[in-house]
């Protein structure tokens, strides 16, 4: 039996869902001819309070991106605040994807010993994370950044430092952060009642993440052994042996390696694409958000509904960022439509 706090959360999320922009809204926004036109259309949405403060002459895609990210963070944290117990733990672990993304950005910059400012990160308040981002952005190198993660959930990353130094690629550390994130998510999921819907959403995301990791690294001709070492050790519908076959075969042999799994259509779509390395991220993200849309209609009385809502918040933010960037770069409407995750 579900706890009253979970029932309350699901009910609140049903209400919050109505605040999301519909596909029609996003399509209409994507047809805007300029950024002020986008702003006008968003004045009737959750973005109004932030966007309304922006003077017209200061409207640009970078500022809008920040606003979209701020709203995404707020939306992500609302369900976490509303829940306690195991469900709260799970949602907290789920919302940690924002701090993981920020950590990745810091590690990438430190890998090249480049400066990074807090404003280059997704805005996440100090009260929502135990990571000390102001200190992390100031460190000189990766080693110092890893030392600052000692007392956090990512402490074991120091064990990957030797691999990172040997390979010289930040993707080793990035994949480890994903590993910590998804493993924690998978573990907290086990303690929840009625977790089938959640398992499906999280499991598919891990599978798609592994697919993206393997295919993108294979396209760059990185060694099979390295790829095998850095895949996330959570296997839902993609078994370890299937992933191993995919690592050996690469994109050309992907339909064969993925035959019989629910991802064979993804491989076929990528093979049909003229630029698979560019379309890879979009194709896999689209699949994830399609799952979320499906879950939103199927899991309406489960915790999976909240996760599906969070995923759709993420999709909305990504699509809005894409639209703002496209308008800034003068990209044609047709090309923009191909890049949207709708």
């Amino acid at each position: 039996m579900r706890s009253p706090s979970v029932i309350y959360l699901i009910t609140r999320t049903h209400g919050r869902r109505t605040h999301l922009l519909t596909s029609e809204n996003l399509k209409a926004i994507s047809k805007s001819r300029s950024l002020p036109e986008v702003v006008d259309q968003l004045l009737r949405s959750d973005y109004a309070s932030e966007i309304g403060k922006l003077p017209t002459e200061e409207v640009d895609s970078v500022r809008l991106e920040k606003i979209f990210h701020r709203t995404l963070v707020e939306r992500f944290l609302q369900p976490v605040k509303d829940t306690k117990g195991k469900a709260g733990e799970f949602l907290e672990a789920y919302a940690a994807r924002i701090e993981v993304e920020n950590l990745k950005r810091i590690l990438r910059a430190k890998h090249s010993q480049e400066k990074i400012e807090e404003e280059n990160l997704i805005p996440l308040g100090r009260e929502h994370t135990i990571l000390n981002f102001p200190a992390l952005v100031k460190v000189e190198n990766v080693e110092e950044a890893v030392a600052l993660l000692r007392e956090t959930a990512y402490a074991a990353i120091s064990g990957r430092l030797d691999d990172y130094r040997r390979v010289g690629l930040p993707v080793v550390l990035e994949s480890y952060l994903d590993d910590v994130y998804f493993t924690r998510l998978w573990e907290t999921l086990k303690d929840l009642p009625d977790s089938n819907g959640l398992r499906w959403l999280v499991g598919e995301e891990v599978d798609l993440h592994n697919l993206q990791l393997v295919l993108s690294l294979k396209m760059r001709d990185l060694g099979s052994r390295l790829i095998e070492e850095i895949i996330i050790p959570v296997f839902y519908r993609l078994s370890k042996s299937t992933l191993r076959d995919l690592i050996q075969s690469g994109l050309d042999g992907a339909p064969e390696a993925l035959a019989g799994t629910s991802y064979d259509d993804v491989a076929e779509q990528l093979l049909k694409s003229k630029e698979p390395s560019i379309d890879l991220e979009i194709t896999l993200s689209r699949r994830l958000y399609q799952d979320a849309s499906f879950a939103l209609n199927q899991l309406f009385l489960e915790l999976g509904y909240v996760v599906a809502y969070m995923l759709l918040c993420e999709r909305e933010a990504r699509d809005l960022v894409t639209i703002a960037t496209a308008l800034d770069l003068g990209i044609s409407e047709e090309a923009l439509q191909r890049r949207l995750l709708l």
Partner: peptide
Amino acid sequence: EHLKAAYLNLGYSGLASQAVTVD
């Protein structure tokens, strides 16, 4: 064109974060 596609996929801040790793 490919750079624009990468911008669309990742946004300005995402791509800037990737670009910073280039030697």
